[in-house]
Design a protein around this nucleic acid. Structure first.
Lengths: 359, 359
DNA sequence: AGCGAAATTTGAATCGATACAAGAAAAATG
DNA sequence: CATTTTTCTTGTATCGATTCAAATTTCGCT
């Protein structure tokens, strides 16, 4: 059976009601966008006609072309869209972005795609005034793609050396040092590192070679911070296993297995993300090991979940919400300048780290 | 100081590079949208010119007007945007919506506003092909506003009698009965209800009068389900306090205080949302009462947080993700028909409910 | 009634692309 | 070399509004 929609040939345009009401395009437009400059009588006549003809109001598609501004910012990632709602880090970040958008009445467009072609298309065709980029796996490609749009954009997590792109991130070296010092102070001497990616698509133990040629400087900086600090305690960092994961469960578990399979197990794990740290806590429990009894763990990020798990996670907390707010504001009040901001971090000591076992 | 942006008079258009490359609009357009039909030589010439002039590629604003389809669905609420990332129920729902969008490559536009005028404007000007409406507080206004756009939309939570709007919800009566029976079976006889709103902007104990004239039929149905079932156990439902909250912390605590201040305290609380149930658990702990020792609690929704808290929450679980997926698909493959779907619910018994204390 | 000022209304131009019928050029065929 | 095909290219119309200078109407006042 034919639906109501199919009945009407095509949607009513502003021009249609203008003609029907016997006024010009311009006046009809004014009735909706600046009603105060139209004579009351005419205004009512046009409105009545619009009502009668079932006019849906000025179509934003038309307005947009004329006005040029969408009043929305795009948030893009190479992950699927559900990442924004599943990942705790992303959620907190989005909350910050939301706050800034709420304050100015701007909207948020979520942009993503599983595969490369679609990502390109989605970034190219997103109706936004600028982008906030979640630079995780594949971040550099995303930056290149976005640059093409010639719209303002901010990369989150400062993962790039490239000084020409605006970015907000944290002091990775300082944060990593905080974590390392905390564990060293507790007497730990045997460490392992669960690392984020140094380059796209890698997984497994990272060689010094890989570290040196890291594309993601954030990862490199965190490792550098760990090592610098541990060196000061006389620890031979060359012997510390560094396992690169994809920051999710499977590869993190693989990393833990590899780390604990090889020789003398660590008494402390430095994880470059809370996500990996939380997986590690679960994994240890499953192995019959206790945290912090047998192994201490310190994460990085400061996601809320870390406070809720058992034991609660010691971590290097980033001001995630504030980063999100600032990123959104950078787009919203964009002035053409490239800005690179570095935020401070804070060590939050909770239950997952404790004194090293004697012996 | 003048920025680079101010330097160039205005962004380069497709027409500009067409002229510069000595081809027509049409050909230039084809170079980008259907490169295969343009002779290789010409194609390269145009592309080179585009590159040289710093053309950002076809502007989606222009394309949109011509094409008509945005390829994005709007998700709207009367709450601030951060609601989508803060509220556990919303998050799970959004995950479902995201999955459907990922599958078809569609984008998601988040629409909201704190105040009424902005809400109207944001709904009117959202660049989307349809809406999914989170009908919470103020949902009916949102529906009215959205209807004006004459775009397909789906109301979540079936909160309306209005049979002309597409909606997806759950069988509230059946779900409520499940919860009530569970507690009655455990021997409870003194109940209290933490209720969602019956109408906008109300808070406090609900009179039969208020219940009768409920605008939100979802709330009414849940209450009816509770009462029907409890009646079968010979419980006088007229004596059960029903406190209407705004489904957040403050008013829920106020409700608990009011309930426990009045006469004989309940041994079981029926909460119409997990959110309220979780607040109740915390509140009881703070009062030195234990759940389920002193008071049993059963929630409604089945958000993941409920499984994690202490004690874990017994609740009536909705298939939230599936609802989200279906809602998004309704918009994505819209066919003009009004659809109203009712999903089943499931009682998930966890630690927050236990046998009633003797005496 | 007549005149200038103020308030409205008009209509063409513009925003930036895509679609398509028709024309032109190149390639294939006799 | 003429003719038919095939492959490209062109130019115009269209998508749906907003803007703004110019034209017109209304109004207040003498």
């Amino acid at each position: 059976m034919a639906s109501l929609i199919e009945g009407q040939a095509r949607p009513i345009r502003l021009a249609d009601i203008a003609k029907a009401a016997g006024v010009s395009h311009g006046t009809a437009s004014n009735v909706f966008s600046r009603p105060e400059i139209v004579r009351a009588e005419v205004r009512e006549r046009v409105k009545a006609m619009a009502e009668k003809m079932g006019y849906a109001g000025p179509d934003p598609k038309g307005r947009l072309l004329r006005a040029g501004k969408v009043n929305a910012i795009g948030v893009a990632t190479t992950e699927p869209l559900s990442y924004f709602f599943d990942d705790p880090f992303a959620r907190v970040m989005m909350a910050g972005i939301s706050q800034a958008c709420d304050a100015t009445g701007a909207g948020i467009a979520l942009v993503s795609a599983a595969n490369q072609e679609k990502l390109a298309w989605n970034v190219q065709s997103a109706l936004v005034d600028g982008f906030v980029l979640f630079c995780i796996e594949g971040g550099s490609r995303l930056v290149d793609l976005t640059r093409e749009r010639k719209l303002p954009f901010v990369a989150l997590e400062l993962g790039f050396d490239d000084e020409t792109v605006s970015a907000i991130g944290v002091d990775n070296v300082a944060g990593a040092r905080l974590a390392a010092r905390h564990l060293a102070d507790l007497g730990h001497r045997r460490f392992a590192v669960l690392s984020l990616a140094f380059a796209d698509g890698r997984t497994g133990f990272a060689t010094p070679e890989i570290v040196r040629s890291a594309r993601y400087t954030g990862t490199r900086d965190r490792l550098a911070g760990y090592f610098e600090e541990l060196s000061r305690f006389g620890i031979d960092t060359a012997r510390i296993p560094v396992y690169e994961t994809e920051n999710e469960e499977t590869s993190t578990k693989a990393g833990l297995e590899a780390i604990f399979a090889a020789g003398e197990p660590p008494t402390a794990i430095l994880a470059m993300s809370d996500r990996m740290a939380l997986v590690a806590i679960d994994w240890l429990k499953a192995q019959g090991l206790s945290a912090p009894g047998d192994v201490s763990i310190v994460g990085f990020d400061g996601v809320p979940d870390g406070a809720l798990c058992t034991p609660p996670l010691t971590t290097v907390a980033q001001p995630i919400t504030e980063i999100g707010r600032r990123a959104a504001r950078m787009i919203l009040d964009h002035d053409g300048a490239v800005r690179r901001e570095t935020m401070g971090v804070e060590l939050v000591v909770r239950g997952s780290s404790g004194p090293a076992r004697k012996g």
